[in-house]
Simulated assay, not measured.
Amino acid sequence: MKNAHQLKGCDLFSLSVFLAVATHRSFQAAAVELNVTRSAVSHSVKGLESRLGVRLLHRTTRSVSLTEAGERLAVKLRPAVTSIAEALGEANDFRDTPSGTVRINASDAAVRMILRPLVARFFREYPQVHLDIVIDGRLVDIVADGFDAGIRLAEAVPKDMVAVRVVETVRFAAVASPRYFAEHGRPQVPQDLHRHACIRFRFESGALYRWEFERHGIAEPINVTGPLTLTDQILMVEAAIDGVGIAFVPDYLVIDAEREGKLERVLEDWCPRFPGVCLYYPSRHHVSTGLRALIKLLQESVSSQAGEENR
């Protein structure tokens, strides 16, 4: 085989390490993805460069970039290494029980609402599967970042992905503490919010979320103001409990606080339902037995919840 002497010295791990560094432009991020030390990543890349006799990366104390040779190698390697990984995954399908690592990228709210209630059961049923869950407020490219699947609101799922609905609908709720309403009154229509202290949400992009209300088919978006802006919905709920103001968050985040009398809802007739939450994965990639097991459990949970609501 032509150039077989080069292939003998370039094991799959070294090539995978190089691709991870090329993708993240970071030795540390590659180490986290591969679950190895940073020094192991550095040693592997140096060894690969030595065996090939060419420099693949430019390194400084602050950045990592690809040389022209590195760029070309990464472009050629990426589909090849992906094919090898898929081939190994297909071979793994012949095992009696699902195994391996499943990497999931999801929002904090999705993890709390969807995965947390099922994790213990999942590990009881599939003890040989390892879940690597990364909480991220950004909508990342799950393929480029090495994830098997993502979990997001249905409207945010990229069109070229296979989407599996795991929550049918999501409803937002405008909530505040009983003390806040006693001191400041209760808004009767969305426009009343301009006279209230509102706890705002900022996306990772820096944009502020505009509160979206609807009644009888008429949309009523409101640009609220208030003393506090956060990038975490759980902190918004806690601030509302503390009496800071009114928060507008997915209602599943406030169920316990409502039950305990710490929060009360307003403008319920104006709070719309949105398309639910989906687990999604690349349509062209092999679906591992571990991911299939997770999808199966999530779908069973959806069916069970639907059954309970219809009783």
Rank of each mutant, 00 (worst) to 15 (best):
I199N: 02
H286P: 06
N92K: 14
D256V: 07
A80S: 01
P190D: 11
F201L: 01
S83E: 12
F123M: 06
G53F: 05
R311T: 10
P158T: 05
A176C: 09
A240F: 02
R292S: 15
L291I: 00
Q28A: 09
E71R: 15
T97Q: 10
S177M: 10
A109D: 15
D269Q: 11
K76A: 15
R259Y: 11
R138P: 01
P275C: 07
T60P: 13
V254Y: 02
A176H: 07
A306R: 14
A239H: 06
P275D: 03
V64N: 06
V81L: 12
R152N: 11
Y180E: 08
Q191S: 14
D148M: 04
V162T: 11
V21S: 10
A29M: 15
R72E: 14
E238F: 07
R112V: 04
F172S: 05
L291R: 04
F203C: 06
R138A: 15
Y280S: 00
R62K: 12
P117I: 13
P190V: 10
S44E: 03
V129S: 00
P272S: 07
V244Q: 04
E68F: 09
F181C: 00
F27A: 09
R78A: 05
R121E: 14
L267P: 00
C271M: 03
Q305I: 13
Q6R: 06
E268K: 14
E49P: 09
A173N: 02
L57E: 00
L208S: 08
T61F: 02
V64K: 11
F123R: 07
C10H: 00
G70R: 04
G47A: 08
A120N: 13
L193C: 03
E155L: 11
S304N: 15
S39A: 11
D11E: 12
V302S: 09
F122A: 00
R112T: 11
R138V: 05
T231S: 12
Q233Y: 08
G290T: 00
G9E: 13
G150E: 02
R55C: 13
L56F: 07
F147A: 01
I84Q: 10
S107D: 14
F122Y: 01
C271P: 01
V134E: 13
H194L: 12
F181R: 10
E33Q: 12
S304D: 15
V81T: 06
Q128W: 09
G226T: 00
L15G: 08
H196K: 10
T225G: 11
A31S: 09
A69H: 14
L297G: 01
E86A: 13
E308V: 09
L73I: 03
M236T: 05
D145P: 06
A197V: 10
E125L: 15
V111A: 05
K2W: 09
A91H: 12
R202P: 00
T60S: 08
A182T: 10
G261P: 08
G226E: 02
R78Y: 00
D242M: 07
A120V: 03
R124N: 05
H216S: 05
I255N: 09
H58A: 15
D192M: 06
F13G: 08
